[in-house]
Amino acid sequence: MYYLGIDMGSTSTKVIVLNENKEIHYKKVVPTGWNCLDTANGILEELKNNGIERDDFKCVATGYGRISVPYMDKTITEISCHGKGACYLFNEKNFTVIDIGGQDTKVIEIENGAVKNFNMNDKCSAGTGKFLEIMANTLGVDINSLCELARSSKNHISISSMCTVFAESEVVSLIGRGTSKEDIAYGVVDSITNKVRGQMGKITGTNNVVRLTGGLCEIPFILDSLSEKLGTEVKSDPLGRYAGALGASLFACNIK
């Protein structure tokens, strides 16, 4: 039997398959695209090509598209899945997980391996991956280069608009004023990590072990900026973006 975890986020869909020994047998990231159903069926096809038929697995779906996976056995929210996946990934039991996703940013407090408290940003996209993506587009670079540019900024500026739409016009006017790309990039990253710090403030964890998951977790400057803001070293893992899918696959192991 295999255990399939699908984390269908707003931007990308993460897939993890565990074998009987709870080892990662298969993993993949695909863009979610416009049609969640097509994406889900594509994954099923892909698994078939790898020799895994529908009857060979149990499946838990999570993420905002979780209900659009027609062959799932169960849905569980991304909060619980990220918590579970992060415990496994980081081998920790008492810590705080920050997940910066495409459409929302979550802060999850874990105590004794279980979710104790959590916090999600509101409707708007400030402080999420989407914000970074839009700003990178405005600057004509990709997200990774934006973060590297930020590192070499000489004059630290801050972007004051909280709202993505206003922040975008702020960035445009900074470009117009001749502010260097590096400095603007710094302002963009700074705005995100500040927002995350604000969200952290609402979670009053008792310890300062902090781990980052989600699509941005492999970007060194994001980790550095967060560590600086939170006053503790924020670590991640190369599999950090799979935390939700991993948690889902671990939950799938419990399905009878």
């Binding site: 929210t77 991304e78 909060i79 619980s80 979710v115 104790k116 999600m120």
Partner: peptide, 12 residues
């Protein structure tokens, strides 16, 4: 989003 938040709270 509300549903996710409420659902996660209930799971917790």
């Amino acid at each position: 989003q509300l549903r996710t938040r409420i659902e996660a709270f209930i799971e917790m």
